[in-house]
Design a binder for these strands. Structure first.
Lengths: 119, 119
DNA sequence: TCGGTAGTTCCGAACTTTCGAACTATGGGA
DNA sequence: TCCCATAGTTCGAAAGTTCGGAACTACCGA
């Protein structure tokens, strides 16, 4: 197992952040990490909605979030703790994360409200 | 040539917008359309920085921006006019576009300032 | 009608994403 | 200490996406 890579705050890239959050599953995972007091084990998030995400895909999602600089992961015994790097991202790109999470939240609310989700 | 597809304001999706703007070329094209009074021909944007973007790639970039709902394109004789749909996107997802364009702008400023761009 | 310009489509090569299977690392008993 | 269970990673094949050159369509002016 190779060591975990985390970009320095000054190496954060807008493109990587947008790419990471352009996947609704990853955005949901990130939103969960924030909501859950900024600390969470990976496997606690293995279901998004009613879909189960396979372990290998989950592992990849966490890697993408980590390498975009959105979360910081550390091995703690047999599991992993994931902290959001909100403050660092926020100070480098003010308003970016709130706007993105808001956009997703607004969209979900609308779907839940009215139109049924497409199959 | 098939007709141009534009999503309705209520069909705009955060994921599509983030995906469209996660590509720095597309983000630059979009920023240009905004800056240039919201109207621009495609080929006017065929260079980003000092790189030339091939026509077919450009055409695809415009398609992605259009289908994400970020721009509205109409054929005008031999060329295309592209309007940004800023107001519509902004009213559906407040703060999203300014935050993203700001993030890119801040990043460019920093690169221009100090470290040389990687090859 | 022809020529030029603007943009699109097609298609193959290169790249990315997904997910099951096999693997590694760690901790807790027997 | 050895073995098992658990948490996560890596591998590899299949499916999907992106890129860009060549050929195409659409429109305008001469």
């Amino acid at each position: 197992m190779r060591p975990l890579f985390h970009p320095a705050p000054e190496d954060l890239q807008t493109r990587a952040i947008l790419h990471a959050l352009a996947d609704p599953d990853r955005a949901a995972i990130f939103a969960n990490i924030m909501r859950a007091g900024c600390v969470e084990a990976c496997s606690a998030l293995s279901a998004v909605g009613d879909r189960v995400i396979p372990k290998s895909s989950l592992s990849n999602h966490f890697k993408v979030l980590r390498e975009a600089g959105l979360i910081r992961s550390e091995r703690r015994g047999v599991e992993m703790r994931n902290h959001s790097r909100w403050a660092e991202v926020e100070s480098r790109f003010p308003g970016l994360l709130p706007a993105i999470l808001n956009a997703y939240a607004g969209e979900c609310a609308r779907v839940a409200d009215g139109a049924p989700a497409e199959p």
